[in-house]
């Protein structure tokens, strides 16, 4: 089967709610039915047919072409299948995803992968603030699955993460892995100040060091851990560079001792200053 393709005709006049355009909600719908789905976020109604040129295909594989940052909630609560976006997306892409594969060939706005439960989310460009984090009032952020950002991530990537894996191949902003409950956050580029702020459990791997580090992280020495090798094998298919880094001897800092203190930050050669 060919993919179901939606091509954005022009930049929309208002922000759009793309959450209805996920594989399990489009399954079994005719072209006519899909074109009548409304996507507005203001009082002015707009339907898929006005905004996109639709080429029918297998709803299990959806492609959105010519996307821009006005498209919010892309792939929200997606349960399976594939969703490929050519271009940027707005806020909360992949929020509460429980399965499938979401790929954004562009940048993602704030709260991408927010509260994600399972599945795979790849962002070819940069991710905004609070990647995988919770919305205000929510107890935990990401709960499972894997997020890969090829570019940079904004502030508080992995905020309150409870399970799952985030790989940022570029830089991470301030407070990376803040308030993490568990899970794994790997940032290969430079991280901003105070990574792992109030980290309870979980693993933060910093490939190129960070800004100011909280004094509540304590040095546990340099180790080449088997667990990291195993982890490397698990993430090899998502990020070769992250896997390569995980196999190196890394300095382990335990913390955040201001809270539970069962988390860890791994540093590469930049960790020497902490010895």
């Amino acid at each position: 089967m060919t993919r179901l393709t939606l091509t954005l005709r022009q930049r929309p006049g208002q922000r759009l709610d793309l959450s209805p355009l996920v594989p399990h909600l489009l399954a079994g719908k005719s072209a006519h039915e899909i074109e009548r789905i409304e996507l507005q976020t203001t009082r002015r109604r707009v339907a898929v047919g006005e905004l996109f040129r639709l080429r029918m295909g297998d709803a299990g594989q959806i492609c959105i072409e010519g996307s821009c940052e006005r498209l919010d909630y892309v792939g929200r609560e997606m349960t399976g299948g594939e969703l490929l976006v050519e271009g940027d997306v707005g806020i909360q892409a992949g929020r509460l995803m429980t399965g499938g594969r979401l790929t954004v060939r562009g940048n993602a706005g704030p709260w991408a992968a927010s509260g994600m439960k399972s599945g795979m989310f790849e962002i070819a460009g940069a991710a905004g603030d609070r990647l995988a984090g919770p919305l205000p009032g929510e107890i935990s952020g990401m709960r499972g699955g894997i997020v890969v950002v090829r570019g940079n991530a904004g502030e508080r990537a992995g905020d309150r993460m409870r399970r799952g894996t985030i790989i940022v191949e570029g830089d991470a902003g301030p407070y990376a892995g803040a308030r993490m409950i568990a899970g794994t956050l790997i940032a290969l580029g430079a991280a901003g100040p105070l990574p792992g702020f109030l980290l309870k459990r979980g693993t933060i791997v910093l490939g190129s060091g960070c800004g100011a580090l909280s004094p509540t992280f304590v040095d546990c020495g340099v180790h080449q851990l088997v667990g990291n090798r195993f982890m490397a094998a698990m993430i090899e298919s998502y990020s070769k560079s992250a896997a390569r880094f995980m196999r190196l001897p890394l300095r382990r800092l335990a913390g955040d001792m201001a809270v539970l203190g069962k988390g860890e930050i791994f540093l590469g050669k930049f960790g020497d200053e902490y010895s």
């Binding site: 399970r163 851990l225 667990g227 982890m231 698990m234």
Partner: peptide, 22 residues
């Protein structure tokens, strides 16, 4: 002990005297 889950794999890292038992 540290619990790690990646994809379908769930494993434990248990600190021991020569490092960790995975």
């Amino acid at each position: 002990q540290i619990s790690k889950r990646v994809g379908a794999k769930h494993f434990w890292r248990i600190p021991v005297m020569d490092g960790e038992f995975v």
